[in-house]
Design a protein around this nucleic acid. Structure first.
Lengths: 360, 360
DNA sequence: CTGAAAGCGCTTACAG
DNA sequence: CTGAAAGCGCTTACAG
């Protein structure tokens, strides 16, 4: 009884010495009549505390509405229970889904997520990462591998485990959870070749600081080259990954001489392909009668559009969950190195691709 | 010179006492031959340090590649430079955009963002918020106001400033950055009424734990009621906010007796409306000749679909930036209370709404 | 302008 | 099973 009172007034004395009126572990200890060590154990290693004492402590904590201060905890234990993720942008559903899967996965491991966006600027990526290192992230997810060398150096110097998502590359010494963009576009290109197409056009998102897009285009070009087919520069359009750019580019590609016009159009993603299909309607052209076209991502709209779009689906939510699981294990220390996981995209051949039109 | 050496070996002695090999401010101080106070000032109040000393200190920090430890900093200064955001889901572009604007805005204020998703479960929201309070967030953004009372109590008890986004309500004592969902749907409904529609149908996302959707439906129903028009329960479909549910619901609404069939269909968002329009094509019906329909959000697709969708646009990126700006000021202490900002959605009347069909 | 030292809120050997 | 006390890496009055 007396104990309680002393504590309560004690608490306000503390306030005078700088404490902001925040309830601290020491206040709980005083109320429960135990040492600070016991309060700490009650919450972190309950089995080490006698039941009766534990309950008294929990009651005190509940009465005071105590929430532990993570900074104190982190300093004393050198664990922060924080993970970070850096992505190009949330405006692309691809990354939003990954973060969604990642966040709920990390949450199950008791990790809170710091989020940073680079807007495709490597320097911003470095800044975000530095902020996160300062705040003691235990692990980091980087979407894509377009980051300055300094970033990777900093991570290695501080021994912060990290994982690269969305990409999967064997030529780089990092842990990946993603897929092989080059192989995916190789596969798509083969599909067109096997349908007899020889005149190709391509509509792509910006390649700068985006090695995924770059790899896709390489996969496309190299596969064509192996078949002895060239993609002329004039039939390659690169611009904003929007419906509009897809539409404009399509009209340009189709405005040429009928004999030069591509019969096959490979798009860097679904938004571009859907934009192109909309422009086709305006021009009175339709797939697969007049041309064939493919996307990448399998947006919700793509399988319902008319014609249904041939595309590849990547389960981004799953990429996020897998990344969370790996990092959760690494942070817990049960695994000492992050491993790679290769995701296989699903190729959905639908209505938008077919044999070469007769009159071409 | 000697100084340097002592320091370096000193550093490894420290390691034996628990330090994880991490470079600390004290190491920088030793290398530069100054006190820890001077190192701290060099970074936090540089104008208080003589130029020469400052430069020596900066050089030492650079040489050791020192990154300050935020936990130590937070504990000593009681500032964490962390803000948090809790949203229902990232799978909805609405929230992804808000987070996008929020993150870059906060970043400019030197704040790092914790992100948590509730998946529309208030309890998860409380858990995420507790995790963030533990980690010392200086301010919190909550999307929507569907959170347990305990959450608001906890925030108020700890005097953590917070802001509710997307909604804007005058009947609740919180700071909002958003719009009036009720008024928005009232406006949409008036548009249909002014076109002469009297038979209404509605396709909505789940209302449970989603007061935005609930307000929308209320705005719709009350405006109809004022005009003496009823929305029959059988003409109201509530389900997943997907293209598919929009399509299925449309077919159901249109399957009834021709005389009972709604001429006006108000959808809770664009995905539902686009799904309905796709189903209409299958049925050989088209807007606005056979029926009128509206959405909400103005997705990229909506202005390009055929017919172009009548809908309302909310600038979610801007909601995020505004929230960041307010919280940045509040965290800095330049303002002591967060203020509300009402956003006005833009009503885009396009091709999908028109006068009541003659034969109805 | 600079430094010695206390203190922020926790955890964790260590001793009992 | 429990407690006294040192220590985690910083900042900040205070004194000079």
């Amino acid at each position: 009884m007396k104990n309680k009172k002393t504590n309560k007034s004690g608490s306000s004395e503390q306030r005078a010495r700088g404490n902001k009126g925040q309830v601290r572990l020491a206040d709980v200890a005083a109320l429960a009549g135990v040492s600070t060590a016991t309060v700490s154990r009650t919450f972190n290693e309950p089995q080490k505390v006698k039941k009766e004492v534990r309950e008294r402590t929990l009651a005190a904590a509940a009465e005071l509405n105590w929430i532990p201060n993570a900074a104190g905890k982190a300093l004393a234990s050198s664990r922060t229970h924080i993970a970070g993720a850096i992505i190009p942008t949330l405006d692309d559903e691809i990354y939003a889904r990954q973060i969604s899967g990642l966040q709920s996965g990390l949450s199950e491991h008791g990790l809170t997520l710091f989020l940073g966006c680079t807007n495709y600027d490597p320097q911003q990526g470095l800044n975000q990462a530095t902020a996160m290192l300062t705040r003691g992230v235990e692990a980091l997810v980087l979407a894509g591998e377009n980051y300055p060398d300094d970033l990777f150096k900093a991570l290695e110097m501080r021994k912060v485990p990290f994982l690269i998502t969305y990409s999967y590359r064997k030529d780089l010494p990092f842990a990946f959870v993603g897929f092989d963009n080059h192989a995916a576009f190789s596969r798509i290109t083969e599909h067109f070749l096997s349908l007899g197409h020889r005149k190709f056009g391509a509509i792509f998102q910006p390649l700068e600081n985006n090695s995924r897009a770059t790899e896709r285009l390489r996969g496309l070009k190299e596969t064509l080259a192996q078949a002895g087919v060239a993609l002329s520069e004039s039939n390659l359009r690169v611009g904003k990954a929007s419906l509009d750019f897809g539409a404009t580019s399509f009209k340009e590609l189709m405005s040429g001489d009928a004999s030069d016009r591509p019969t096959a159009i490979i798009c860097g993603n679904d938004a571009l392909a859907l934009g192109a299909l909309m422009a086709a309607k305006d021009l009175g052209l339709s797939a697969p009668e007049d041309f064939s076209i493919s996307g990448f991502d399998d947006l919700a709209m793509s399988s319902r559009f008319s014609p249904k779009l041939t595309t590849m689906k990547v389960d981004n939510q799953r990429i996020g969950s897998l990344a969370a699981q790996i990092l959760g294990e690494v942070a817990k220390g049960s695994v000492d190195k992050s491993r790679s996981i290769e995701i296989k995209p699903e190729f959905h051949i639908r209505e938008s691709t077919g044999p070469v039109p007769q009159n071409s």
